[in-house]
Design a protein around this nucleic acid. Structure first.
Length: 517
RNA sequence: GGGCGCGUAGCUCAGCUGGCAGAGCAAUGCCCUUUUAAGGCAUGGGUCGAUGGUUCGAGUCCAUCCGCGCUCACCA
């Protein structure tokens, strides 16, 4: 029998003994008068004398995180909402049965206590317990109290244990919650309407990515989990929602990595009668405000660096300028703007870059714009720590964006980078149905060339545009990545409660029960 | 998918060039009525990720597989 099974059996036995003492083993509720954080907030500053006169009686509940028995008295720490309060249990005060119950308690059990507040000899605020109520048993042993749970696999697989043991993990997810609140408050304040659009779509559009496929039985049809809500939100602008947003999950069937999880959360919004410049300003304000709301300031730690989110620190440059600026010395003279104008010139840029530096995958069949975008990723992205807006993206990689009036190979599109990550993407929305059809057709050619991530044709979307979509700017903001940046988390799994892992073979707790029979 | 690394008690970790599988916490029993990484005495706990192989002998060396991490590729 494995050790944890022995402990499991032993603690089930204790449950029976607890029941024999007249306690309910899984009671329905407990009426408390304070949460533990409330007790700490209200009484941490009070002196021993102030607590004596008049005495403050409290009823609190929590999980036992430390327990020390000393003959006929003992101490324990109860944890609630990530905070701990010490309790003092004396046989004289709780009686024979109460003390028997105390001795049957284990680390991890939930109890409620009533008693009065006092300070111990060493000065710690504590509850002098007069009554203990058993609330729930921890049948499996918690990890070690010093190091807690550090094994990353166990932390992700058993996040519930991670959250019990590691208060800083709890803090990260509280901050994530604040972030989402902040984003909503900002958008609502700007007059945007929050909507929900389909997660299951017959055509996975609005982004360039491989989708997950699922199947609806009654309709006998395949559906895709959405890779973006974009095309539905823009249908809504056709319908007269001039300012809409959605905060929800997207699903992309691609590799995992420190910035990639197959399901991730996006804030996406569309604003009629403005263009990429308008939503650029708005998004910058949105993010600066989020940093303030989550961290209380505009400067956040990012590994060895500090990111300053205040408006004056943001940089802006075009994609071409960024490639020029971060061009590696070993690759020779910096490119000229004219070097981006022809496929031949771009090809020689890639050759120079690759000879000096790492590798940009170069496929001569790829559109020139796609190669330039790859060159940007390789040359510049790694240097973009401080918030930076990169604008003017190649038309070839931007099938839903308006072209620049004077340079049709380039679009009115931008992305925000920080901490070497892309965190937002916005553009002037392409609303000419005939142009949109041509772009989709170009994407179909890409698809036929073997790019299964190229955008599919969406006839209903073109029909919607044909009814007239107002000029608009649209933006997607990666909520998980923003949460990473604001909590100094260097893997996306640390800001997703239950990240995707391979399934494990689980040993059920019933095994122990079975073996007893 | 490629490369590198890791997997030993419930948890955190030692275990040297192959030679009796260890520590702390947790657990069990006893003592202890203001302790706090409480303390003292005693006890139990292992398919060393799995399967093969080399060897007199494998936690240790080799191969394969499984799981995890890092990294490269892929990835609006």
């Amino acid at each position: 029998m494995a050790l944890d099974e022995k402990i499991y059996e032993l603690r089930r036995e204790k449950l029976k003994q607890i029941e024999a003492l007249g306690q309910q083993v899984y009671p329905r509720k407990y009426e408390f008068t304070y949460t533990i954080p409330q007790v700490l907030a209200e009484y941490s500053e009070k002196t021993a004398e102030q607590l004596e006169n008049p005495r403050v009686t409290v009823r609190v509940a929590g999980r036992i995180m430390a327990i020390r028995l000393m003959g006929k008295a003992g101490f324990a720490h109860l944890q609630q909402d990530g905070k701990r309060l010490q309790i003092y249990v004396k046989k004289d005060a709780v009686g024979e049965k109460g003390f028997e119950l105390y001795k049957l308690l284990d680390l991890g059990d939930h109890i409620g206590v009533s008693g009065y507040l006092f300070r111990t000899r060493t000065g710690e605020l504590s509850v002098h317990v007069e009554e203990i109520t058993f609330l729930s048993k921890d049948l499996l042993p918690l990890p070690e109290k010093w190091h807690g749970l550090t094994d990353v696999e166990l932390r992700y697989r058993q996040r519930y244990v991670d959250l019990v043991m590691n208060p800083e993990v709890r803090e990260v997810f509280l901050k994530r919650s604040k972030l989402v609140q902040s984003l909503r408050r900002f958008m609502d304040g700007q007059g945007f309407v929050e909507v929900e659009t389909p997660m299951m779509q017959p055509i996975a559009g609005g982004a360039v990515a491989r989708p997950f496929v699922t199947h609806h039985n009654t309709l006998d049809m395949d559906l895709y989990l959405r890779i973006a809500p974009e095309l539905y939100l823009k249908r809504l602008t056709v319908g007269g929602f001039d300012r809409v947003y959605e905060i929800n999950r997207n699903f992309r069937n691609e590799g995992l990595g420190w910035r990639w999880n197959p399901e991730f959360t996006m804030l996406e919004f569309y604003q009629a009668y403005t263009d990429y410049r308008g939503v650029m300003e708005l998004t910058q304000q949105l993010i600066e405000q989020a940093a303030k709301d989550v961290t209380g300031g505009t400067k956040t730690k990012w590994g060895e660096d500090e990111i300053d989110w205040s408006g004056s620190n943001w940089r802006r440059m075009t994609m071409r300028e960024a490639i020029i600026q971060h061009w590696p010395e070993a690759a020779g003279a910096k490119p000229q703007m004219s070097d981006f104008a022809s496929s031949g010139a771009v090809e020689s840029l890639v050759k120079r870059f690759n000879s000096a530096h790492a590798h940009v995958a170069y496929d001569p069949k790829d559109p020139t714009g796609k190669t330039i975008a790859a060159l940007f990723d390789a040359a510049a992205e790694g240097y973009l720590i401080q918030p930076t807006i990169i604008y003017e993206f190649p038309t070839a990689v931007s099938p839903l964006s308006k072209q620049k009036a004077d340079e049709p190979d380039w679009t009115e599109r931008w992305e925000i980078f920080a901490g070497q990550m892309e965190i937002a993407n916005g553009f002037s929305e392409l609303n000419d149905p005939e142009d949109q059809r041509r772009r989709f057709e170009q994407q179909l050619q890409e698809r036929e060339r073997g790019d299964d991530e190229a955008h599919q044709m969406d006839e209903d979307y073109i029909r919607a545009l044909s009814y007239g979509m107002p000029p608009a700017g649209g933006v997607g903001v990666g909520v998980d990545r923003l949460a990473m940046l604001l909590t100094d988390s260097h893997t996306i799994r640390d800001v997703i409660l239950f990240p995707l892992l391979r399934p494990e073979k689980i040993v059920t707790t019933e095994d122990a029960v079975e073996r007893e029979k």
